Simulated assay, not measured.
Amino acid sequence: MTLRGAALALALLVPQIAGAQEVAIGTGAVLRGLDKLNGTAIDMQLTTGESAELGKLQVTLRECRYPAGDAAGDAYAFLSIHDVAADTPVFEGWMIASSPALSAMEHPRYDVWVLRCNTE
């Protein structure tokens, strides 16, 4: 686990340990993908377990959580992102909507971030 991954894991656990905030699990999420070479952005509406393609990437939503009672609050989603030409994931972990750089996917052409969870 990288230092950034450890910091993210700790950040996700602290509210649960302290009891500061309860979370709810969404039925899906809205993600935004950016092709950095041509400047094209697309929004992906995914239900939990569903995948979408962004160029040569396959983006799979594993889970989306948000503050209980505040669906418009800060969402965070567990994503698996694979390049179809590679065996190992390009990214696998939690992304936080308000802090996408905290746990960002590092790819030369594409960028992906979480916008919000779906509740219906």
Rank of each mutant, 00 (worst) to 15 (best):
I17H: 12
P67C: 07
T2C: 05
V30E: 08
E22C: 11
A97W: 00
T2P: 04
T27W: 02
R65I: 05
L8F: 11
L115Q: 15
A97P: 03
I17C: 10
D35V: 08
D70E: 11
A68C: 03
R116V: 03
T27I: 06
L61R: 00
R65E: 05
G26N: 02
A68N: 09
H107C: 10
R109T: 14
E50W: 07
D35I: 03
C117D: 05
I42L: 12
Y110S: 00
K56A: 08
A101P: 06
P15K: 01
L46M: 03
K36L: 14
D43F: 09
A11P: 00
E50S: 12
K36N: 08
Q45T: 12
P100Y: 09
A18W: 09
L46T: 02
T40R: 15
A6Y: 08
E63F: 10
P67R: 11
Q58D: 07
G33E: 02
I17K: 13
W94C: 04
V114R: 01
G26V: 05
H82N: 14
M1S: 12
V112H: 01
R32E: 07
V112F: 00
C64R: 11
A41M: 13
T119P: 01
Q21A: 13
A29F: 02
F91M: 03
S103H: 14
L102H: 08
G49I: 06
C117M: 09
T48K: 13
A9Y: 02
G55A: 04
F78E: 07
I96C: 02
A104I: 12
E63R: 15
V90Y: 00
A29L: 04
A9Q: 14
S103K: 04
L8N: 14
G5R: 15
G93W: 03
Q21V: 07
T119L: 04
M95G: 01
L46R: 10
V23M: 13
A52E: 11
D74Y: 02
S99M: 14
L102E: 08
V112K: 00
M44S: 10
G28H: 05
A71Y: 11
A7R: 15
W94L: 03
H82S: 07
G26W: 03
T47I: 04
V23S: 12
Q45P: 07
L115A: 06
C64N: 07
R116G: 01
G28E: 09
S80M: 03
I17F: 12
T60C: 10
A75T: 05
E92Q: 10
G69I: 08
